[in-house]
Nucleic acid binder design. Structure first.
Lengths: 115, 115
DNA sequence: TCACTATATAAGCATATGCTTATATATGCA
DNA sequence: TGCATATATAAGCATATGCTTATATAGTGA
């Protein structure tokens, strides 16, 4: 029950970022844990540069954070960010995206990056 | 405590619409009741066509509904729409926009359209 | 050091967006 | 009917957005 009030301009910018199917899916995918870029590429069925560009927007806005693990870079939600309450509420109202990762896993396609 | 799950594509489209400062303010303004177009024009300090175009997008998406009263057209939240739970959560997390209407009223500027 | 993998960035381009100005439509009233 | 007001729509234009292809950067392991 978050009652944080977020500056209208900041809120609009956040919603704009989430108002894109690709980015909203990304947020859904990391809602319960980090993912590396190659996983996004697989799940989203998009080119790697395109995915990277979306991730950059999310990172620049502070919505996600990255962590390098060797050759892979993992992205996760930035729960410390001012707009996290908004993000959290939205996640609760969209379908579970994590299933898509499971599906990938079962198809044996997940984790070229053996996390 | 809305637990409605909204289709990802629909959610993204809704968030995109709300991801604009003007439209988010409009939604905030009508969060507790209807407003007519001339009020939006005053509060937002924007041209009438520009306001109309934003209202049209919100209406086309079903987020708001309109009601004509004589020469004026009043807009209000469409609480029956599937995405209303999302809208509602967002309204709770942005600053009160209604004050802006009060300010206008006190400045004697409100209601050329004597509602 | 060299090749290979993972990721980021840059440049180019087509489409989307949001404003402006001009005009159309609808209502109210003399 | 005719004019004023409120609102919508259309056309034009500048900027933003999201993709593509090409290339740069960084880590890994031989």
């Amino acid at each position: 029950m978050e009652k944080t009030i977020i500056d209208l301009e900041t809120a609009a910018q956040t919603l704009k970022l989430l108002g894109d199917k690709t980015r909203l899916t990304i947020i859904g995918l990391i809602s319960e844990g980090e993912c590396c870029v190659c996983e996004f590429v697989e799940v989203l069925q998009m080119s790697q540069p395109s995915v990277s560009q979306h991730l950059r927007k999310l990172r620049d806005a502070g919505l996600v954070k990255e962590k390098r693990k060797g050759q892979w870079i993992y992205y996760s939600l930035n729960k410390d960010h001012a707009t996290y309450p908004i993000v959290q509420q939205i996640i609760e109202q969209i379908p579970d995206q994590i299933e898509k990762l499971h599906a990938l896993e079962q198809a044996g396609l997940r984790i070229q990056c053996d996390s």
